[in-house]
Design a protein around this nucleic acid. Structure first.
Length: 110
DNA sequence: TGGGTGACCATAG
DNA sequence: ACTATGGCCACCC
């Protein structure tokens, strides 16, 4: 526990995101206890880049349902393709029915 | 040791 | 409705 770093915690949560579901940076930050440090989550994802599919970073978007991190993938369309492959409809870099696909990390405790 | 950075979020103009 | 700005704080050099 003492050795656990913020990045590791973020990866742990992202890894638990069910297939076909998505969540937001802010939701993860809130779940970790720091709603104000949502930027840290995004930064953690930067380190997770390349760990796919071990860490499904494509299932993490901003609170607007937009694929803000698409430019960080190997290709700008990879993120969208991965989401569509899971049945998530994406138009103009935004997730359709984001609230329906939204997955809250607190569901882990359910 | 200190300062810059960022795949965000919320508020104000 | 859109743009600008501040806060946030773990990590890296």
């Amino acid at each position: 526990m003492a050795d656990a770093r913020f990045f590791d915690d973020v990866f742990e949560v992202v890894r638990q995101i069910p297939r076909g579901r998505v969540t937001s940076y802010g939701a993860i930050a809130t779940f970790l206890g720091s709603a104000r440090s949502a930027r840290m989550v995004g930064w953690a994802m930067n380190a997770s880049f390349g760990l796919l599919p071990e860490v499904p970073a494509h299932r993490v978007v901003n609170r607007n349902g937009e694929l803000s991190g698409r430019l960080h993938f190997s290709t700008p369309f990879l993120m969208q393709e991965l989401l569509e492959a899971e049945g998530i409809e994406v138009v103009e870099n935004a997730i359709i029915d984001f609230d329906k696909h939204f997955w809250n990390p607190s569901d882990l405790l359910k």
